[in-house]
């Protein structure tokens, strides 16, 4: 589904590649856990997959099509969806509006409000909190809203950058259940960057980044 070919990445004004000559296939219906020490390039890899950044060398293919040839906005809106460690919600918006915005951006056709509401129901957010501004939600709830937003875009690839990094164990379990559910119910490709081995253990494939290379 998502194929990396000879992907290299070097930070501006740095001499060494942070990612070096990476070749890898991410397939749908699987959960990948990317692990590695700080500065190993986990988030960088994720940002390349999300096309928030471009590789210095090499190419990334989505269903055998070079992602550079896909319209950037279309790619971000429909093919990949990101869950950030710091949630990155629209903080002046309500939970419902956050999800609605994802539906609008991905050009969802149908009753958006009902659909957004049903997605928020699936992440177990109480009805009365749907219209609450996200800053008035707890950290766990915010992360669940971020997950709901990712679900709403109906992208094939879900990229999660330490989605449970700021959560307690209960919320961690809830978020992980949701991500695993995406794989099982919707055959999504879920790629999780994590430091937490307990999270990684739940993944189908664990990838370590070491010296700029991927080790499965």
């Amino acid at each position: 589904m998502l194929r990396l070919e000879n992907v290299c990445y070097r930070y501006h004004k740095k001499k060494m590649d942070v990612l070096h000559d990476i070749n890898y296939n991410f397939n749908k219906g699987l959960v990948y856990a990317i692990m590695g020490h700080s500065g190993s390039g986990k988030t960088t890899l994720l940002s390349l997959l999300a096309r928030l950044d471009n590789p210095t060398k090499g190419n990334i293919f989505y269903n055998d099509c070079d992602i550079k040839k896909i319209n950037l906005n279309v790619y971000r809106a429909r093919y990949v969806s990101i869950i950030f460690q710091s949630y990155n919600l629209l903080y002046k918006y309500s939970a419902l509006d956050n999800v609605l915005m994802a539906l609008n951006v991905s050009r969802f056709c149908g009753d958006k409000i009902n659909h957004a509401s049903s997605i928020l129901d699936t992440i177990n957010l109480a009805k009365e909190k749907h219209t609450r501004t996200v800053t008035n939600l707890s950290g766990g709830e915010q992360q669940r809203v971020a997950t709901a937003r990712a679900i709403a875009s109906n992208a094939d690839i879900i990229l999660a950058d330490e989605p449970t990094g700021n959560l307690d164990s209960i919320n961690t379990r809830q978020v992980m259940d949701m991500l695993l559910g995406l794989k099982e119910k919707h055959q999504k490709c879920v790629i999780i960057v994590t430091h937490d081995e307990r999270i990684a253990d739940q993944a189908d494939v664990i990838i370590n980044i070491d010296d700029g290379k991927l080790n499965t």
């Binding site: 971000r76 990155n88 994802a102 951006v105 991905s106």
Partner: peptide, 13 residues
């Protein structure tokens, strides 16, 4: 600025 970045990451042109 932050909102714009989020919306851009979501695919808004």
């Amino acid at each position: 600025k932050y909102d714009i970045a989020v919306l851009r990451s979501m695919g808004m042109g």
